[in-house]
């Protein structure tokens, strides 16, 4: 008797959990569903749950210059992440294996402070500087900024993963005559591979999702995908299905990468303070 009641309780708790999560992610699900509707169906009230899905609005969204925005987004996020990795991984390595604790901590503090400085504080000077350098409204401007935005992330995540590499392993390699680069690229980096990969994926997500720099530095000639949303919505008539299709296409990349790297999200976002 008692066990049956317990079973019932447990089933209810499980059902409740599923319902809560469903409700929580409902806004995203609803966008995905709306993207498969026709415009007329999207505006139908009460909201339609059963309908014949169509790819027409996705095609419309793709035909409105999606490719150009996509290429800007891909270029800006991939190139900036690559540069951040090239600059950041050696820095993280130096912090863990080549510095005294005090110097390493000071450097970490500096790196944190550059990332946590409100972006609004440097947008005006960057705008003026990029105008003078003829970089305004170009993808290189975004690459420069996103690299600065993601370098701290790569450094503090890299630092946190290198700290997990046993010092004895490097000692042994050193005794076998490994030089600095061999130590870093043949031993430390491969041992921290999954963590470093996750750091790069997080950097791509941050660059991909950025709105602030893109809207202020490259709105007219080199807009990225998040800007495409705003240009779709500044029109008087919002086309619900089309804009939902567009939104779905945009979030595929960050959601996929983020779910893949999810085990490392806490460490990445807490600057290595939490694991």
């Amino acid at each position: 008797m008692r066990s049956r009641r317990r079973w019932g309780m447990r089933a209810m708790a499980t059902g409740g959990t599923y319902f809560a999560i469903l409700l929580f992610v409902f806004p995203v699900l609803w966008m995905v569903v709306t993207g498969f509707k026709t415009e007329r169906q999207a505006y139908t009230m009460p909201p339609l749950l059963w309908f014949r899905p169509t790819l027409a609005e996705f095609r419309l969204a793709l035909a409105s210059g999606f490719g150009t925005y996509l290429s800007h987004s891909v270029e800006a996020s991939l190139v900036s992440t690559a540069i951040a990795v090239v600059l950041g991984v050696p820095a993280a390595y130096a912090m863990v294996f080549r510095m005294r604790a005090k110097q390493s901590n000071n450097l970490l503090f500096f790196v944190l402070s550059t990332r946590f400085m409100p972006f609004a504080a440097i947008i005006v000077p960057l705008y003026v500087i990029f105008t003078k350098l003829h970089l305004l409204d170009t993808i290189p401007a975004l690459i420069l900024v996103y690299t600065a935005m993601n370098l701290p992330l790569i450094i503090w995540m890299g630092r946190s993963y290198f700290m997990d590499v046993p010092a004895e392993t490097l000692e042994a390699a050193r005794l076998d005559g490994a030089n600095l680069w061999q130590e870093m690229f043949r031993i430390a980096a491969p041992l921290s591979r999954s963590g470093l990969t996750a750091s790069a994926l997080l950097a791509i997500i941050f660059a991909w999702n950025d709105f602030f720099f893109a809207v202020n530095l490259t709105y007219t000639h080199s807009p990225t995908l998040p800007i495409m949303v705003s240009s779709f919505m500044s029109n008087e008539n919002v086309f619900l299905a089309k804009v939902s299709g567009l939104g779905t296409l945009i979030v595929v990349v960050p959601v996929a990468l983020g779910l893949y790297a999810q085990r490392h999200l806490v460490r990445g976002l807490s600057a290595g303070a939490l694991k």
């Binding site: 806004p27 800007i227 804009v243 999200l265």
Partner: peptide, 17 residues
């Protein structure tokens, strides 16, 4: 997922849908 959704798409969803 909500954490990974691009912020401008987040606004699009809430405002319109």
């Amino acid at each position: 997922i909500p954490f990974l959704v691009t912020p401008s798409v987040n606004a699009l969803i809430w405002k319109n849908l």
